[in-house]
Design a protein around this nucleic acid. Structure first.
Ligand code: NAD
Ligand code: NAD
Lengths: 210, 210
DNA sequence: TCATTTTTGTTAATCAAATCACATTTACAG
DNA sequence: CTGTAAATGTGATTTGATTAACAAAAATGA
């Protein structure tokens, strides 16, 4: 079953980065093959779920043998496009944005923040990790010279809709926001939220009840 | 239907913090009532999903009228225990941990990082936002004087299992980790991951395919 | 080579969540 | 007070994901 033929379930796609990372770690440790049962132990996913997930990307395994780690990495890497670096823009270089920029996905060679923007004149012009902080209005122009695949926003809630409107206008279609304010965007634009407060509240709540 | 009687679906609980925050914002803006349809517009959730979620917590609405915002806030606030501050410990005060500590949930009066720990002697003793950075070994003792409801870990992947083992030993049961390394813990301990890299990869992937 | 064991890939069964559809309740206008 | 419009709460249905069960395929060892 090839990817093109059938729609791959959302959840299977969501797990792909986890599979990919884990397999890379295994390869680094010198392993060459893995069975769904072993992998399941490591990442706490049922082996049968893993096998079904893998099956969406082709007949990747061999009965009585398992999966070739190198082969899986190659296939999944292709889907995740790890060979070409995915350029990202960061909007809002406050405390959180700064931490992201300093780290800049150093463990993930295929993700890279290549431009950064802020509204505060006091920090515009500053360079962090080889990236110059620019006024947001420069983004439009930067797009003509740099391949920006997505945006990470760490601006405060009250500024988010404004910023996102501008991003949409510039043609950005993938946005990850650390502020949980729900924003209005056209159908074609994907917005994800990484809502720390909700995560913590859920953690405590589920410990209490669930 | 009262909360005690029936098990509340996981997803309904997960949405509770979002409902709560949104309702508080509406109250701040002077609104006193809301219909499931309006609320659904704001937070992009189907009205029927909202009504069913709410129904798990009692008969909160009135036909032909909607919901009283103050009443919802009171009920949900009670479930989320917003009246007593939930004390948190932060492990790992690097770039990311520092950003969290400086912000310290200032928009959420019921969450508060009350202690912080790190392994680096160079920063132990430093005070950020009235919290002193201590060696991790001090946590055990701190637990006898302070109510710590959960832990946020921003230590690197390679240190995570070690740190978590210690936390479990101390009796901590709720952990949020920014490092995606899967850890082994007893059944009774809840670990959540907030995996930035996976979030970004999924964002780009779903924009590409889904 | 052949029997045994292992492990996959997938059909069928289960489970959980979202949505539909509508009877019931309440607000409100006249 | 009464009739109409509006909105809830919930059985029934649909959708989607996970898990169980197992036949088919490949490896291994005698
Ligand atoms: N840091 C945390 O612990 C934490 C916790 C929960 C949620 N958040 C969310 O993440 C956001 C960022 O957190 P932070 O601690 O980095 O805040 P911060 O105030 O340190 O940084 C915000 C940055 O955004 C910039 N900014 C404001 N408006 C802008 C605009 N229109 N265009 C470009 N840049 C703009 C500011 O100049 C500032 O540098 C918070 O507002 C919050 O919504 C953070
Ligand atoms: N910052 C990012 O953009 C980013 C992105 C993806 C994932 N992460 C994850 O978050 C983690 C933290 O990120 P960061 O940028 O703050 O890294 P960092 O290196 O700045 O901070 C890590 C901190 O943990 C402390 N530490 C190490 N071992 C410890 C131990 N055993 N006990 C107590 N403290 C210990 C270190 O002293 C340091 O202060 C990363 O390792 C990574 O797994 C971060």
């Amino acid at each position: 079953m090839t990817p093109q033929n059938k729609k791959i379930p959302r959840m299977s796609l969501e797990r792909l980065p986890i599979y990919y990372r884990t397999l890379c770690n295994l390869a680094d440790d010198g392993y060459q093959r893995i069975k769904s049962a072993q992998l399941g132990k490591i990442i706490q996913i049922e082996p049968t779920t893993i096998r079904r997930d893998f099956s969406y990307f082709g007949d990747l395994g061999k009965s009585g043998y398992g999966y070739d780690i190198g082969h899986l990495i190659e296939i999944f890497g292709m889907i995740l496009e790890v060979n070409e670096t995915q350029g990202l823009a960061l909007i809002g270089v406050g405390n959180l944005g700064r931490a992201l920029l300093i780290n800049n996905f150093r463990r993930n060679p295929n993700l890279e923040i290549i431009t950064a923007y802020d509204a505060d004149p006091a920090i515009i012009g500053e360079t962090i990790n080889d990236v110059i902080i620019q006024p947001l209005a420069d983004l439009q122009a930067d797009l003509s010279t740099k391949q920006i695949k997505g945006v990470i926003s760490t601006v405060p809630s009250h500024a988010l809709q404004l910023v996102v409107d501008y991003l949409v206008e510039c043609g950005i279609t993938s946005i990850l926001s650390f502020a949980p304010e729900p924003v209005n965007v056209p159908e074609s634009v994907h917005v994800r939220y990484l809502d720390l407060t909700t995560e913590v509240q859920n953690l405590l709540l589920l410990a209490e009840l669930g």
